[in-house]
Structures are given as C-alpha cells and as structure tokens.
Amino acid sequence: MRRITFMQAINEALAQEMERDPTVVVFGEDNAGGAGAPGEDDAWGGVMGVTKGLYHSFPGRVLDTPISESAFIGAAAGAACSGLRPVAELMFVDFMGVCFDQIFNQAAKFRYMFGGKARTPMVIRTMYGAGIRAAGQHSQSLYPIFTHIPGLKVAIPSSPYDAKGLMIQAIRDDDPVIFFENKVLYAVEGEVPEESYTVPFGEANFVREGDDVTIVAIGRMVSFAEQAAEELAGDGIECEILDPRTTSPLDEESIYESVENTGRLVVVDESNPRCSLASDIAALVAQNCFEDLKAAPKMVTAPHTPPPFSPTLEDAYVPDPERIAAAAREVVEGAGARA
C-alpha cells in the first residue's frame, strides 16, 4: 500500500473533507501563511506546514488568524453552532492557557446547558509532546485536562493511518473534538489508503497480541511500547499493546478484556503523572479488574516537572522503550508480582 507521512495523512484528510463538504473551513495562525504579506500567499500552511496547499484548493475557506486564540477558538465554537464545521488550529496545546474558556466553558458545555439543542461540530487541531527541545511552554502533553471535561472528545493518533481516519471522523463528528498531533510523529511514514475512511472513536486498536502483560499506550508512546515488546519477546515475555486512540470516549471494555487475560497492566503516558491518562486507566483497572490482577498496575510517565530544555534532561523526561520494558518486566517477574 502507498506510504505517506503522518503530516501528509492529516493534510489529505482535511483536503478530502473540504472537497466533500463545503461547510468545512480551516483556520489558525499561519494556516495559509502570508495573508497580507508581500511574498508567497501560501507560504507556510501552519507553522509546521500541515495545511500547506489547501489555501489555493479551497478559496475563502482557509484563513490566517491574528495571534488571538480566544477570539478564533471561540469563533470556531460560534461557527459550529451556526452551520459550519470548522477546523481551528491551536498551534501548540500549551497555548490553551490563553483560550481555555472558549473551549471548556463555551464549546464543551453548549449541548448540556442548552438542553440538548446545540450541535457544536468543531475540531481543534493541536500539537503536543516533548522531543524538539522546545522546553516548558511548547512541549506539554495536556490531553488529560481535556479528557477531564464532559462535552469534549479527545483523539490522539499514533500512526499515519489513524491520523487520517480519526481526523475525518473528527470533522464529521457533531461534538467538539480536540485532535492531538505529536510533533515528533509528523515525519513518520506509514501505509495510508488513498480513499476516504474513518476510524471510529472509542475503539482501541490491538497493536500487538500477547498473554503476559497488557501495555496501554497512546500517541508517540505506542511505537515505544512496540520496541519494548520486541525486546521482551526475546526473553519470552509476550506483551499485548492497546492503543485507545481516543481518551474521550475511552474504550474501557477492550482494556478490561485484555487485563482479564494477562492479569498485568502497564500504562504509558507522555503527560505528567498526577491526574493523568495513566492514573485514570490504572484506577479504572484497579476498580474493575481487581480480581484478575496478578500485580499492581504500573505507570510509565513523564515526571512531575515541566518539560526541560536541555537535550540531556528532555531525553530523561520522556518515557522511553527501556523504561517501558523495565516496568513490564517488573509486573511480570518483580517483587510486585503475585504468582
């Protein structure tokens, strides 16, 4: 099958949905890149180039914005309530700090507060994750905060295939969706069908099957878990890897099904550990699969610190395959394990 990058997959999803549905619009800082400037008029396509090329294909529907996240994220909510399906880009999720009200007090709450009358079909595309030496304000993995909010859906693709399918689903979805793109994954290649398709929300992907330990990982952490599983397989430890793909809704049933089989759980989460995806899933499993557990669940996360700048420190900050393998080994063989 054809191979394209994670970034190309998102671009293709946007292009195909814009082609199919004239109410889909795309806007954000530099989304065309160059509006009003004397040079090229589609210079950037977003700071990383994800929307490059759309500006000329869809006149009037790809818009640069001022650096005013509150206004244009709120505009996405208002547009969604009045006939459009906007895809707004919040360049780095760290910038939620300047516009969060429009997301969690406005868009997320319309349907409930307005007695079921509102539909807010908007997507916020946003970059997350450490790994490019961008330090504390451009490297966080803040999806647990959005997952916490009723009314929002949260998608976190780990592969080009899922990136395209989840994005098309997100655009067609009638609820507000926060779409997390790990910036380190943009250049990753994978098999992606040329035709349009959706990946449903709330359905975990069984990335690898195994009977000894369940590893739940998301986003960039999925490939790290796969590397760890390869290593462990050499030692006779078979890992089952689940990628929830969306954290809201969360496919709890698939996680429980896997843990019932393996009796052991490692959750890998690039976010900080407190009130994280890892702590959430560990708590759900402890509550719902206690009888099946042969060892206490283990969390592999970033530490309770901001993301550091120094490459040495940042490399130590992000969970890696070695830490994942060590955690899996410990739940299978270590002191925490029960026979």
């Binding site: 505009a75 996405a76 006939g83 009200d101 007090n105 406005q106």
Partner: peptide, 20 residues
C-alpha cells in the same frame, strides 16, 4: 456566565454567514 464570553462566538457566526 463568563464576562466577555460572547464576542468570539459572534465572530464565528459572522464567519459562517460569510462562508455560506
């Protein structure tokens, strides 16, 4: 309930009218 919450939403309404 949020003071200043509404004006961004109305920008969206305006964008919607313009695009459609």
């Amino acid at each position: 309930g949020i003071v200043g919450g509404g004006p961004p939403l109305v920008c969206g309404v305006g964008l919607s009218a313009k695009v459609r």
